[in-house]
C-alpha cells in the first residue's frame, strides 16, 4: 500500500512539472507584447518598458523564468499580476465561488447519476431505463450556453424560482440553477456508466452464487453489486470534478458569477502570464490530486488493484 501511494506521488510530480512547463512556455510565447500593450494607444517610453520587463523578469530566458516561478510556488508565491496585486490574492477571492458551484454540480451528478443509473440497471428495459436513455441523449446534445440561457429565461425570469444572475443571494439559491445546467452533461455520462456497470455486474457468476447462497436481494444489490459497479463510475467522477472546476467559464459568464473561470478568461485576454499560469497550475493540481484520491479509493474498493 505504501509503495502504491509512493509510486502515485512520483508520477504526480512528473506530470505536474511537465504540464506547468508546457503552459508556462505557451503563455509566454504568445504573439504580442503584453508590456507594450499596457500603455494602450499611447506607447510607453522605452526606459519604462525595459524597467517593467526587468521587474517581471521578462528579459530572461524562458527556462530561467520558469525555474524562478516554480521556486516561488514552493514558498507560496504565485507571482504578481500587471496591476501589482499578487496572483495568489486575486485567485483566493475567486475560488470560493467556483468551488461552491463545482461541488454543488458534482454532488448533483453523484447522487442523481448513481441512483438513476442503479435503477435503470436493475430494471433494464423498464420505464425508468427508457426515459433515462432519452433524457441522457437530450442532455448531451444541447450546448451548455443554450441550456444556460434557456434556464435563466424560464426558471429565473418567467417562473422566478431562482435569481437570474449574481451571487448576492448566496448558497444554495444563487448556485442551484447554474449548477444543474453544468451538471447535466456529466450527469448523463454518470447515469449511462453506472447503468452499464450494474447490468454487467448483475450478469456475473458471483451474483448467481450469492443468490444460491440465499442472500437477500437487498444485500446482493446494496453491498455486492454496488461495490463492484461503482469503481468505473468513480474514475469518471474524479475527472469530471476537474472539468467542472475548470470548465465554468461559460456558465460564470451567463450567470455573472465572479469565479475563477471569469478570472482566467480576463487574464488570457490581457496576456497576464502569471495569472493564467497560476489558475491553470491550480486546476492541474486539483485534477491530479483528485485522480490520486480516486486511485486510492479504487484500491480500497477493489483488492485486485491493490495487489497488482
Amino acid at each position: 500500500m505504501i509503495r502504491f501511494v509512493g509510486r502515485r506521488v512520483v508520477e504526480l510530480a512528473i506530470v505536474f512539472v511537465g504540464v506547468t512547463f508546457i503552459i508556462y512556455v505557451m503563455v509566454f510565447t504568445l504573439p504580442g507584447d503584453p508590456i507594450a500593450a499596457l500603455g494602450g494607444d499611447r506607447p510607453l517610453p522605452e526606459a519604462v518598458q525595459a524597467q517593467l520587463r526587468a521587474q517581471y523578469h521578462l528579459d530572461e530566458p524562458v527556462w530561467l523564468q520558469y525555474l524562478r516561478y516554480v521556486g516561488g510556488l514552493f514558498t507560496g508565491d504565485l507571482g504578481t499580476g500587471f496591476d501589482g496585486r499578487p496572483v495568489g490574492d486575486r485567485m483566493a477571492a475567486r475560488w470560493p465561488v467556483t468551488i461552491t458551484l463545482a461541488l454543488t454540480a458534482w454532488a448533483i451528478e453523484v447522487v442523481v447519476g448513481v441512483v438513476l443509473g442503479l435503477i435503470s440497471g436493475l430494471r433494464s428495459g423498464g420505464l425508468v431505463d427508457r426515459t433515462v436513455l432519452v433524457g441522457t441523449v437530450l442532455a448531451t446534445s444541447i450546448p451548455v450556453f443554450v441550456l444556460g440561457v434557456t434556464a435563466q429565461l424560464v426558471f429565473g425570469l418567467q417562473l422566478g424560482w431562482f435569481p437570474i444572475a449574481g451571487t448576492s443571494e448566496g448558497w444554495p439559491t444563487a448556485y442551484l440553477l447554474p449548477a444543474i445546467v453544468i451538471a447535466l452533461f456529466g450527469l448523463a455520462s454518470v447515469t449511462r456508466l453506472m447503468r452499464g456497470s450494474v447490468v454487467d455486474t448483475l450478469r456475473s457468476d458471483f451474483v448467481r452464487t450469492l443468490t444460491a447462497k440465499g442472500m437477500p436481494r437487498r444485500n446482493i444489490v446494496g453491498v455486492h453489486v454496488m461495490r463492484n459497479s461503482v469503481a468505473p463510475v468513480l474514475t469518471f467522477l474524479a475527472i469530471d470534478l476537474g472539468y467542472l472546476l475548470g470548465g465554468t467559464v461559460v456558465i460564470e459568464a451567463i450567470f455573472n458569477l465572479p469565479g475563477i473561470g471569469a478570472l482566467l478568461f480576463d487574464a488570457i485576454k490581457t496576456h497576464e502570464g502569471p495569472t493564467v499560469v497560476g489558475v491553470a497550475t491550480a486546476l492541474i493540481l486539483i485534477f491530479l490530486a483528485t485522480s490520486v484520491v480516486v486511485d486510492l479509493i479504487n484500491s480500497v474498493l477493489d483488492p485486485r488493484i491493490r495487489h497488482e
Partner: peptide, 29 residues
Amino acid sequence: SERDFAAIRGRKVSMIFQDPSNALDPVFT
C-alpha cells in the same frame, strides 16, 4: 415465491458452479 426460495437456498439446498474463479465476489475476502 422468492421468499420461499430464500428459506431453501443455502440452507436445505446449496450449489457449486463450474468456474470457481468467477463464482466468488472479487472485492470481498
